[in-house]
């Protein structure tokens, strides 16, 4: 079983990102959307959490949400894959199930 976790909250707002990562099982993926995309930026207080998550999971971030917030793709943590809505759909079908963290 592999699960796609989606996170839509800023890591500065609550503990969703940490909870999600701590409950991710092997072969899971994490997709950051909406305010969640703040999580994948370099040099923030939470960058290390994502960098260590990358050792165990695939991490994705939704480009339209990065663009909307003026977050430059150049400042995204290396190893995080940038995806669009079409790949978002692909990810949901490629995984056995989706857990939308709220």
């Amino acid at each position: 079983m592999n699960m796609l976790h989606t996170v839509n909250k800023s890591p500065f707002e609550n503990y969703t990102v940490s909870s999600c990562i701590s409950m991710c099982a092997k072969d899971s993926s994490i997709l950051f959307i909406e305010d969640g995309v703040i999580s994948v930026m370099k040099s923030t207080k939470f960058s290390e959490i994502i960098e260590s998550a990358l050792k165990n999971f695939k991490v994705y971030a939704l480009k339209p949400d990065l663009d909307a917030r003026g977050l430059s793709l150049n400042n995204v943590i290396e190893g995080v894959e940038i995806v669009g809505y079409e790949e978002f759909v692909d990810l949901t079908t490629e995984h056995d199930s989706v857990q939308s963290w709220l």
Binding site: F12, I38, P64, D67, A68, R69, G70, G84
Partner: peptide, 18 residues
């Protein structure tokens, strides 16, 4: 806090339809 993101340069919202 996250309010500082409101003033970010180069916001492009076409992709999210807002």
């Amino acid at each position: 806090d996250d309010g500082v993101y409101q003033l970010m340069k180069d916001q492009k919202t076409e992709g999210i339809g807002m």
